[in-house]
Design a binder for these strands. Structure first.
Lengths: 240, 240
DNA sequence: TAGGCTAAAATTGTTGACAATCTTGAAAAA
DNA sequence: TTTTTCAAGATTGTCAACAATTTTAGCCTA
């Protein structure tokens, strides 16, 4: 199990890491899909990884549960959440509502500088994809939506969307197409920025909705394909 | 300080009350404006009131902080949050976005049964107001918006709006008009239900937005009136 | 009397030990 | 061989004691 970054970047003078820090690390791992839904998180292992006490991990668990990133069962610890199809539906519905609303606010106030920053982000996405750095690409893809949302200048809505983006990451990990995503949102973000630059509200809205609908449409809620299933079974048989 | 209900309704067989329970009690007190912004919440006092250990209270604090209901300062404990004017602006902006979006979803699927339930709620509001039970009336007023939102069938958005409603309660307590609220939303809710019943999307949307804007417009961010200020100062001088 | 200093009290933060529960693994029975 | 049972180990939940910090109260001085 790989959570957080290499221990080599920890040595900045005794920074005991707060529960928020632990939360952030776990969330980032989820966002980059290094932590798969269903993964068991024991208190002790996180204590070791982050160099914090059980108290801190415990508090972090409470916050992560509140954000629907993990599930806590009494006496049985924490596992990374596995959103149900219905939850997935609600997450995407929420994202459409929230992001279109924020987009309308943004399009009225957006400055050329903001557009530049978005374009610069698109370049990052592109390079990550070309370098086959999928984890990074997945993260950047999610962060694009967050950057866009931030421009609306409403911290509360921004924080809420952040939650939704993390949940989306779990959903895609669970139900997303196997071959990762190159087919998914290659040009969509770019077109959206174009529409934004031209203050084309209609177009931007439509693109955003289609983009989200596209991702949702590619989900497969059916029981996993037999191939993947067999592998899973064999893997478990080997270790059990 | 009055939090939660009388101790006489606790005796239901050893139910140790979870952190969620404690959270809910505190939130309800905020919703009914029995807990004013700025009120200090000591761990010990809450332990006593709810009959739980310090651990539970501490966890509840963490969750309440996450919901912006209290503020936690290191080594200085918890106080009921005092949203800034900017936060207030964002809360109302968020509510307009969220509630209008949910309203559009609701108006497509609402059934006569749902309308009846809303009307029944309106009667409760009315009776509370007539009986001058302001605390109850304030709570019911907030719950109306939640009931309406629940009809949209999106639990995630519902939970989010819930947060916003609690924050609104703090904002009104801080910046609201002195004479409480009879002038505020007497007929607004009723008209909104009428529009809903007639599936008049335009009208319902407009009423909702006007309703929220009205509440926001009545806020007074200016430094408190000298009268109230003097009282506060004297009160503090007496206890200090 | 006002201001500042110090010690006592109160409150919060942290840790570790212990209790409760679940999981694992092996032995015994079918 | 398969299933059941039970005990040992591992993990989580709770609590109380202790440490760190803040707040309060009294005292002294100017």
């Amino acid at each position: 199990m790989v959570i957080g970054t290499a221990p080599s970047d920890a040595p900045l003078r005794d920074a005991p890491l707060s529960e928020e820090d632990v939360c952030a690390r776990v969330r980032d791992s989820v966002l980059e899909q290094r932590l798969a839904p269903g993964t068991k998180l024991t208190e002790e292992s996180l204590c070791g990884v982050f160099g914090v006490g059980r108290t801190t991990v415990r508090r972090a668990f409470l916050l992560l549960k509140r954000d629907n990133i993990i599930e806590l069962q009494k006496n049985r610890g924490a596992v990374v959440a596995s959103p149900s199809p219905e939850e997935a539906r609600q997450v995407f519905e929420s994202r459409v509502l929230v992001e279109t609303a924020l987009l309308e606010a943004t399009i009225k106030t957006i400055r050329p500088y903001d557009v530049d920053r978005l374009r610069s982000h698109l370049l990052d996405e592109k390079s990550a994809l070309e370098n086959a750095d999928i984890a990074r690409w997945i993260r950047l893809t999610g962060e694009f939506h967050l950057r866009l949302a931030k421009l609306a200048g409403n911290d509360i809505m921004y924080a809420f969307l952040k939650q939704l983006v993390f949940q989306t990451s779990l959903i895609v990990a669970l139900y997303g197409p196997n071959g990762a995503g190159p087919n998914c949102s290659g040009e969509d973000h770019k077109k959206l920025v174009d529409a934004l630059e031209q203050s084309d509200r209609e177009m931007a809205s439509r693109l955003l909705i289609e983009h989200l609908n596209m991702i949702e449409a590619q989900l497969e809620f059916a029981p996993k394909k037999p191939f993947s299933d067999l592998q899973t079974i064999f893997a478990e048989a080997r270790t059990a």
